[in-house]
Amino acid sequence: MIAFIARRLLGTFVLLLIMSFVIYALIGLMPGDPIDIAINADPNMTPEDAKRLKAIYGLDQPIVSRYLAWLSSALQGDFLFSRLHNQPVFDVIMPHLWRTILLMTISFVLATAIAIPLGVWAAARPRTWADYTVNLFCFAGKSMPAFWLGLLLILLFAVQLRAFPASGFETVGDGSVGDVLWHLFLPVLALTLLNIAGITRFMRGEMIGVLRQDFIRTARAKGLSNRGVLYGHALRNAMIPIITILALEFGGLFSGALITEIVFGYPGMGKLIFDAILGSDFNLAQAVLLFTTLVTLLANLGADVTYAAVDPRISYS
């Protein structure tokens, strides 16, 4: 197992190195840069000014030399300054990351906690009204655009009921735990509703497949209770593909939810990444994209390790 993890970690490092160049090159290959746009926004800026600024920000250098300079700093632990925020990259990322982890983890835990039993419950009653209702909810959840659901929730809870704030993550000057949770309510609700739909569908599908298998019939023949069959035998077997899905979702916990963040004015990683890419903020975009890549790779590694724990037939050497 240790040798397996070590090999995977080495592979992760190599992949990160390749990804770092790919990300840098992709952003660099986009035509135009922020200084070109600035010259159109500011009638007082001359082309000479633009040339000078490009030199100051290093945008006049070939992409490969810029990348090598970045890599050399990054390997020494210095991720440089964000051009868009005029702050060290880590100082920019940390508050956004913390807020994103808070938002996404709560909605992820809630969605998983609701979706798995809901999927099992629906699978145990195939082709009944209960199953159809769950399916309808899942299809609605999957087809509903995030911004639309967000606005509906704002209209209901913030505008009509005035029970929760329409946006932001804290009341100015407050920031207590209760206040933060109060602000988190609507974005968490939106994300949870959207996530429940996907996970429930997978769970239901997997469970229906497992419940048709012979060992389930044997378990029932042995006189096990329905609850024992569902949660003791079927769920454990249905969990392997679900773990894969949850591992992939886990990577998303750190990259944020762009649309939800915009609708709820929540300053998280989604908007930060979006602005960094569009604004050609190489240092910031590199750091956040590599970080989310790393988390996704580690989550996948975690999923592989978990398979062995869930299914005794799986072992690594």
Binding site: F147, L151, I154, L155, A158, V159, R162, P165, A166, S167, I262, V263, F264, G265, K271
Partner: peptide, 12 residues
């Protein structure tokens, strides 16, 4: 950063 959210915030 969104017109509809600005409106909702004003109303709320």
């Amino acid at each position: 950063p969104n017109g509809a959210s600005l409106e909702a915030n004003l109303l709320a």
